[in-house]
Amino acid sequence: MNAIPIPGTQRSITPAGGIVWGVLVLLTVMSAIVRPGLFVDQVIGGLVYGLVLVLIALGLSIVLGLLGIVNFAHGALFMLGAYFTFQLMEVWGVSFWVALIVAPLGVGLVGVAIERGVLRHLYDKNPLNGLLATFGIALMLGEATRAIWGGTPRSVVAPQILSMSFDLGVTTVSRIRLFTVAVAVVVIAAVYLLIERTDFGLSVRAGVLDREMAEFLGVNMNVRFISMFVLGAAIAGLGGVLRGAAVGMDVGMANQFIILAFVVVVVGGIGSLFGSVVAGLLIGGASYLTPLYLSTLAEVTTLEFINIPGIGGLVPYLVMIVVLLARPRGLFGQEGFLE
């Protein structure tokens, strides 16, 4: 049997690539030595941020791959997860642990309404219709949120057990961040197992590749469409709960995160869930570590202009430009999906 080529293994490291990797390793070591506390802070910060992005990007990627719809309302579902948490905890006085379960379920219900009410009429239509419709839904959900909970930022009081900090020696890290990491990892692993290891997941993967052929073989694809849409919505809602509990919420978070989640999906490669996970961690890490690296470099070389303020916000887009120039299909994307 012929060996199947694995993407990325055929190419050896070029001299230019070697230099880039060398510089990155050097910067990492330097930063870790010069400011160990800040370094650990940024690594954990990037991890948390990246995983929240992955939670949003997963649903986006599933809906795009399976339904062929660019769901612009997905960021609003993430935002609703946070505001539902606020409603449950601060208005109705429910505990965080209940909100952690109930808020994503509520967002899933909103997902049902969106899928049944709007999106199912748009399958197999011009993708632009789906984009416009979901953009409209995003605006409506944003304004509804502003009307109900007000335009000022809100926050919730996380339970005692999560608001304490771990002492790591060089720095301290709040438990809510570690909790976010743990929950995100469990959810990502569960989605992976669902898609790759179950009969249901097999039918979903087949539907992504050729919906009609799967139907000819007896798969009721509509049931899968709605299940996966609701699952994606609930996971985005869960991301909203975790983000809301850790740093609070405002109406702007929907747009801020949907754009970044799109960047993650595109960088990871459309149609690849695994790619979204890698891209989310890459972008989260790069956003937090780049400013640190530049400031370390500025300190070591005494060239102050290298320390560009606000560079962290630009990094996701820089990563996207570089990845797309080198690999237009994204890191793990299917050839020909959008090329």
Partner: peptide
């Protein structure tokens, strides 16, 4: 059962997965 023009095998699924899918839903 239709064996369509152009075969339409699920390209990323293995031979066994292609067949398992058909068995699962028959």
């Amino acid at each position: 059962s239709l064996v369509p023009e152009g075969r339409r095998c699920f390209r990323d699924l293995t031979v066994k997965e292609n067949l398992r899918l058909a068995a699962d839903h028959a």
